[in-house]
């Protein structure tokens, strides 16, 4: 893909993909933390451990959402830029810039 008036789509698409991968990893962590039992700990520790794991499963979910947000924003940027480039192409392509009889 060629440059779009200063916007280079490839690195942006790669970045979007990497953020998407990170989102998946954090979703997995959220699931792991949320599903982690505390039965191996002494009873006096279990309540605090459960509260911790519940909170951190939520944080990891938020992190996944943040990563998805970056990924989506970058994908949208590439799409918008491509769309705008196509529109500009159409606009300029429709102009007959010749003079005289050739016009």
């Amino acid at each position: 893909m060629t440059d779009l008036y200063g916007v280079v789509p490839e690195p942006l698409a790669f970045a979007a993909r990497d953020w998407g991968d990170l989102a998946e990893l954090m979703e997995r962590s959220s699931s792991d933390l949320g599903g982690q039992g505390v039965g191996a700990l002494a009873p006096s520790v279990q309540a605090a451990a459960s509260a911790f794991l519940t909170a951190w499963a939520g944080y990891a979910g938020e992190s996944a959402a943040i990563a998805r947000g970056f990924s989506s924003a970058l994908d949208a940027l590439v799409a918008d830029a491509t769309h705008t480039d196509d529109a500009i192409d159409t606009h300029f392509g429709g102009i007959d810039a010749r003079l005289g009889p050739a016009r």
Binding site: L22, L25, D32, L33, A40
Partner: peptide
């Protein structure tokens, strides 16, 4: 009370989460 082996498993889950947070920051 408590089981060391099961506690190690919990620790591994947390270490994995730590590495993911670090990966997030690095990326």
């Amino acid at each position: 009370e408590g089981q060391p082996g099961g506690s190690d498993t919990l620790a591994e889950t947390l270490y994995t989460a730590a590495s993911r947070y670090e990966e997030f920051a690095d990326e």
